[in-house]
Design a protein around this nucleic acid. Structure first.
Lengths: 341, 341
DNA sequence: TTGTAAGCGTTATCAC
DNA sequence: GTGATAACGCTTACAA
């Protein structure tokens, strides 16, 4: 907001047009009961004076801040960017603005997240994981009557509208792909334990394996934090086992990329000696070599729809039922049949 | 902002304490001239009622929105994230909030950027390239008295405080590295022409080459758009020349990663048959194989400092002189001496 | 030390 | 159709 020189207000326009401020307000808001002549005149002077409505003043009357918060926790860059892109896309042309609110750790202090939202005075919130699964946050937001939409929740379906994919099915599908190629010794790199998707994806892997009579060997399950480095380290641990897996399922693409790097550092060739599959189909999947077989999660479209639901709620409409987006298996070069067992 | 149930206001507190709203205001703002007894009482009831000041109402009086905008144009995810991280870091504990404002194309409609900023009613702006070099935007912001800080501008030093690296020197340095390895036929992949850094970095390359008597062969200069794909395509064009370069200087890491992929698709091995160098030292530099030799630009620290300058300006203080951050040559595995010329 | 009145820019209410 | 008037929640200026 410009300080110093005074901004043009509706009163200025009113004076110049010889009408009341209310009439100007009517014109600017497209309300009826104004002569075409006056309407044109007001519109013209508004344009000439480069009038910009004062959102803050509007907000004081309407008891809104026209601010929407986006809560997420240090995820991979491409995920954040897709999230923001989708949210902003839907916001285009709306009066609402997007405030980014990355938080250090939802799990360690969800109370702080709620406080942050209150202090920021947002009209509504988009909750990305793991906040979208945090019952304390959901409960408090409900109590405070702060509308929200949830992105990729995996539980507590009774809380508010949400947009997700079927993590279990998607994970199951990519595991089936590896099994179909002939893999039996499958290593798994889990994501951050505070994200509920971690459990869901593991479950999906397990289901697929169970269908084919492959026991889930806990010795072949390692944990990462959804980052390249953590995936690299976890893969190293897996690949140094006396009997090592012929394939690795990583719970996101960054960790899968790390696994490929780890394999290379050990002289293990992907996909000849080791298949690696990711999850998300983020940018990194096409950047690494070999390009990652992964399962596509339409993050941008999901964020777009979540914002749509939130805006509907803010407008007093029904947000529509929670949506489940489809996932798509992306076959690339990082997976192949095992050499010989 | 919660709707429905009415929010607690200072008037509510005032009534309960039997004092005037002004007194409550004084207490809440830490102003003097209030008895300790009343102060304690007000503070207690405020806490009990979970009072949250209405930022919108405060903003109307102070003629501020307490909103800071961050303008950038579809850069690589890791760059945006670093930018946001640095800006938010500095904002921690401040009353201001960050609004992200990615724009499609600054060059094609800088007027729209200014309008966006006005409509969003930000108190100040952080301008990332190429907006930080756009004279129309800078001029208009000056006229509108909207404070700003510039990130990585390359010209128009008379406009406002800025934080940058010496693009020419950094580019020159990485070119020197290749020349020092023995490369003479050096291909160049420029970035988006609307970014002024593109020209500066090209100049840096040229200077280094000139120092060693190597003419800048325009036939060895291709243009990209700072994206992986554009780098891939540009590299393909370079590598299909009858006489191909022994090294490629890409103006950012994403394009360098694309160049490596292009080389691989042609059966050209990096760094044995081709050296590839990037710029920025973003995440992708360590993810690709071979890891990129590049020059580190401390984006996060730069954004942090730019925000610092902006906050100083908003507080009425001098923002301090424009700063030039140091760059660091990062030697990794993507560059080596040419095989044999 | 405390309170009153006015105003920030806009919209809602209700006369005219 | 149009315009006073009040109100949104807070702070500033001034009075008591």
């Amino acid at each position: 907001m410009a300080r110093g020189k005074k901004r043009v207000t509706i009163v200025d326009i009113a004076k110049l047009c010889g009408v009341s401020a209310k009439t100007v307000s009517r014109v600017l808001n497209g309300e009826p009961h104004v002569t075409d002549k006056i309407r044109d005149q007001v519109l013209a002077t508004a344009k000439e004076l480069k009038y910009q409505p004062n959102v803050v003043a509007q907000g004081l009357v309407s008891r809104r801040s026209y601010l929407i918060g986006l809560i997420y926790e240090k995820p991979s860059p491409s995920y954040v960017v897709d999230l923001q892109k989708g949210a902003l896309e839907r916001l285009h042309g709306e009066r609402y603005r997007l405030i980014v609110l990355p938080v250090e750790s939802v799990a360690s202090d969800s109370e702080a997240v709620v406080k942050l939202l209150q202090a920021t005075a947002v009209d509504g919130v988009l909750l990305a994981p793991p906040a979208s699964d945090d019952s304390l946050i959901l409960t408090e937001l409900d109590e405070l009557h702060i509308p929200f939409a949830r992105i990729s929740p995996t539980r507590l379906p009774e809380f508010g509208p949400s947009v997700a994919i079927d993590d279990i099915a998607a994970a199951s599908e990519i595991a089936e792909h590896l099994i179909g190629l002939g893999h039996r010794r499958i290593g798994i790199i889990k994501g951050d334990a505070t994200h509920a998707a971690t459990e869901a994806r593991l479950l999906g892997y397990a289901q697929a394996m169970a269908r084919h009579g492959i026991p889930l060997n806990l010795d072949f399950v390692e944990s990462g934090l959804f980052s390249f480095e953590s995936g690299h380290d976890a893969a190293l641990r897996l690949l140094k086992r006396p009997v090592r897996p012929t394939a690795i399922l990583a719970q996101n693409d960054d960790m899968a990329a790390g696994a490929i790097a780890a394999a290379r550092s050990l002289g293990i060739e992907v996909p000849r000696d080791l298949s690696v599959a990711g999850f998300d189909d983020s940018d990194i999947a096409r950047v690494v070599w070999p390009a990652l077989t992964t399962v596509r999660q339409p993050v941008e479209a999901m964020a777009h729809q979540a914002m749509d639901m939130l805006l509907a709620t803010l407008a007093g409409d029904a947000p529509g039922p929670s949506a489940v987006h489809g996932h798509i298996l992306q076959l690339r070069q990082s997976t192949a049949a095992p050499a010989s067992t």
